[in-house]
């Protein structure tokens, strides 16, 4: 049955997850996670591999039952009200596929037929560059073509909400841009988009809200601007041999309280705050004084990589 117009314009968040816990055998994949996604936004769930992103999404899609906590998607329980929910959402899975012998456009047409008022498959295929490989069997599509087809399958049913899991994995730069434009156009047309990624540039560029997840826990949420504090500068210092004991504290003292020094490892540290030309001079003087040789000294804008590094002490891209 086509959804009534009232359900399309319904209020309340698109996704509301609270206290979600998911365990596999001996490992906790999701640990007391809270997540709220407002309608008509692009929300990025960012985190390293194994952070619990896919498990969280698959719970929202009704593939997995929440072991603790509550999950509501468009106000529905994805398990007990799955049949009502599924026609209203679009899903792009990381591991879901197609028959090996099915042709690309044939697959798209098939999924379109399962919906009440699907998009024009030729228009959508054209938008995602599937025109050239429309008659190619799925098994002979390149990785990037398979990704584009999977994205098309997720949006062809004109959903209110799409979950796209690592949408641009394996895509070339041109296809990534096409995908980003498509997701932005969907938001402008009133669709809610939830995407997972481990590319911070993708999250920073697309998302209205970013949730960073690590080891199954939400470590920080906010808009890209809030998270990067409006582009504070950072200095990353890596040296050739370990710092002498107590040296980072002396550097903090030398730089003053407006800048923050964080030790990342025994050979690297991160300085965050309003840096100026004297900051670099202070750092090199400190290096000389303690007999350490800089291997690299990088000045940049604070980005999501730095946020992740500061909060977890580890690099985002593993």
């Amino acid at each position: 049955m086509p959804a009534s117009p009232s359900s399309v314009t319904a209020s309340g968040p698109a996704v509301a997850v609270s206290g979600l816990v998911m365990r596999y055998a001996d490992k906790v994949a999701v640990d007391q996670l809270d997540l709220v996604v407002e309608r008509r936004t692009i929300t990025a769930v960012l985190g390293p591999n194994g952070a619990g992103k896919t498990t969280t999404l698959e719970t929202c899609e009704g593939y997995r039952k929440a072991q603790a906590g509550t999950v509501r998607v468009l106000g529905l329980d994805p398990q007990s009200q799955r049949r009502d929910l599924l026609p209203r959402i679009g899903v792009m899975l990381q591991d879901g596929g197609a028959w090996s012998g099915v042709r690309a456009m044939e697959m798209l047409r098939h999924i379109a037929r399962l919906h009440a008022e699907p998009l024009d498959v030729d228009v959508l295929g054209e938008r995602l560059g599937l025109g050239d490989c429309g008659r190619t069997p799925y098994r002979r599509l390149s990785g990037g073509q398979q990704q584009r087809l999977k994205l098309a399958l997720a949006v062809v049913g004109r959903p209110e909400l799409v979950f796209v899991d690592e949408p641009t994995a394996g895509m070339d730069p041109a296809a990534r841009r096409t995908t980003w434009e498509l997701l932005q156009e969907m938001r402008a047309d009133g669709v809610t988009v939830v995407l997972t990624t481990h590319h911070m540039d993708e999250a920073e560029r697309l998302a209205d809200q970013i949730h960073i997840i690590d080891r199954g826990r939400m470590i920080v949420s906010g808009s890209p601007l809030q998270l990067t504090r409006g582009g504070t500068s950072t200095i990353r210092l890596v040296v050739t041999k370990p710092f002498p004991e107590g040296a980072p504290d002396l550097l903090q003292a030398a730089l003053g309280h407006r800048l923050e020094v964080r030790t990342i490892s025994d050979v690297s540290l991160l300085i965050t705050g309003p840096a100026d030309s004297t900051t670099l001079a202070t750092v090199s003087a400190w290096c000389e004084q303690h007999g350490v040789l800089p291997e690299s000294l990088q000045l940049g804008q604070r980005n999501l990589e730095d946020v992740f590094l500061e909060l977890t002490g580890r690099e985002l891209v593993t």
Binding site: M1, P2, A3, V8, L86, P87, R88, I89, R113, L114, H115, A116, E117, L119, V123, V155, G157, R158, P159, E160, E185, M186, A188, D189, G190, V191
Partner: peptide
Amino acid sequence: STGLFTPRPGAAPLWRQ
């Protein structure tokens, strides 16, 4: 306003599926 992606969700009748 209606764009290309304006939501119109819904399942086709079961027999058609």
